[in-house]
Design a protein around this nucleic acid. Structure first.
Length: 81
DNA sequence: TTTCTCACA
DNA sequence: TGTGAGCA
């Protein structure tokens, strides 16, 4: 790859996270509000999701699909990351 | 053009 | 949770 190397960690805008997780922007922002993910913020105050955030959101999605609510997911991820 | 926050249904 | 308005 002679284009460019990862400056620090691969980060993506919510648009990409949306497609990678299958979640809506609303859900992603809501889960962040609940403390399930903590994406960084760029100069324009936009969320910059790392690979870890995306994987975490996928975990959250899996729990939601299992019928677990935010409180339950928070307890699970908080006790056994 | 895309994302952000806030408020409403 | 979805949608719309107004802004950067």
């Amino acid at each position: 790859m002679s284009h460019d190397i990862p400056p620090r960690q691969a980060c993506f805008p919510i648009r990409v996270v949306m497609e990678m997780t299958g979640l809506t922007a609303r859900q992603i922002r809501y889960y962040e509000e609940q403390g399930l993910v903590k994406p960084d913020r760029n100069e324009g105050n936009q969320r910059m999701f790392s690979l870890f955030d995306i994987e975490r959101l996928n975990t959250v999605k899996a729990y939601i699909e299992k019928g677990i609510n935010i409180a339950g997911i928070k307890a699970i991820m908080s006790s056994d990351g």
